[in-house]
């Protein structure tokens, strides 16, 4: 579903090029919930944002749904993006629009007629259980409710892929659970492929099938969390997976 081929990202700065992501390849299968985990600055957001080309890779190609996004014209890219939803840690809702109008926004910009829009908005509000908040403004909603509106908005155009950048990092543990259930539910019911970035192993363990562990701009390990459970081999993965004793035995001075 998503194929990253030797993508890298570097930024120009005063002291030359900074590499945020070293050439990395990654494949996410259709219908899976894929996690990307790593410490702050590891390059998780950068890699996720390459999947809809919000971040254009310096080298390499990004193939989503069979299309090489790096080869698309601006117009083709806009069309391709309609089938890739995205949610963020800070929600990024339009503050001057009601919940319903926020969900209608992606439909509006892709030219869906008003009547169909209203219908779809209603369905999406139902999916996230916020029918009663249709006419509330974001300022009147709790963090969890805002994220549910953001999820509904991301789903409005019936995307094949949902990219989630730390979707629960601004929420309390209980609300985190609710949001993760919604994400899992969307994956099951609609077969949406999900990529979820988090620095919190609990979140990832909760819903992901496979995960990639990132450190200093590279994927150091890919693990399958389902079934018998593959043992992590890198120190950073052991640390993040909470296998602290093993990590310490390996002589690592994190904590």
């Amino acid at each position: 579903m998503i194929v990253l081929e030797q993508v890298s990202k570097s930024y120009r700065s005063k002291d030359g090029l900074i590499s945020a992501v070293a050439p990395t390849s990654l494949e996410v299968a259709e219908g899976e919930i894929f996690g990307i985990i790593g410490q702050s600055g590891a390059g998780k957001s950068t890699i996720l944002r390459m999947m809809n080309l919000l971040e254009a890779p310096t080298t390499g190609s990004v193939i989503v749904n069979g299309r090489d996004l790096t080869k698309c014209s601006p117009q083709e890219l806009r069309v391709a993006r309609r089938s890739i939803g995205m949610i963020f840690q800070h929600f990024y809702l339009l503050q001057n629009r009601t919940a319903a109008d926020n969900i209608a926004f992606p439909l509006e910009i892709s030219g869906v007629p008003k009547k169909n829009r209203e219908q779809r908005v209603k369905q999406c509000l139902e999916i996230v259980g916020l029918e009663d908040k249709a006419s509330a403004y974001p300022a009147q909603l709790s963090g969890g409710q805002k994220q549910r509106v953001a999820i509904a908005r991301a789903l409005a155009t019936e995307p094949k892929v949902l990219l989630c950048d730390e979707p629960t990092s601004a929420l309390d543990p209980q609300t985190t659970g609710v949001i993760l259930e919604f994400i899992r539910d969307i994956n099951k019911r609609f077969g949406v492929t999900i990529v979820l970035v988090s620095h919190d192993m609990e979140v990832v363990k909760h819903i992901c099938g496979r995960i990639a562990v990132m450190e200093h701009g590279s994927i150091v390990e890919t693990l399958d969390l389902s079934g018998t459970g593959q043992k992590p081999t890198t120190e950073i993965a052991k640390l993040l997976l909470g296998d602290r004793r093993e990590a310490l035995k390996g002589g690592v001075a994190y904590v």
Binding site: M86, F88, Y92, L93, E108, S110, T157
Partner: peptide, 29 residues
Amino acid sequence: VPKGVIEAALGMGATPLQITWKVLLAEAR
């Protein structure tokens, strides 16, 4: 207007004109 809001709209496939009217000017009104 938070840059993230503009990025979110870009990620949905909004054109520059749509971003100007429906995001920037509407949010900064």
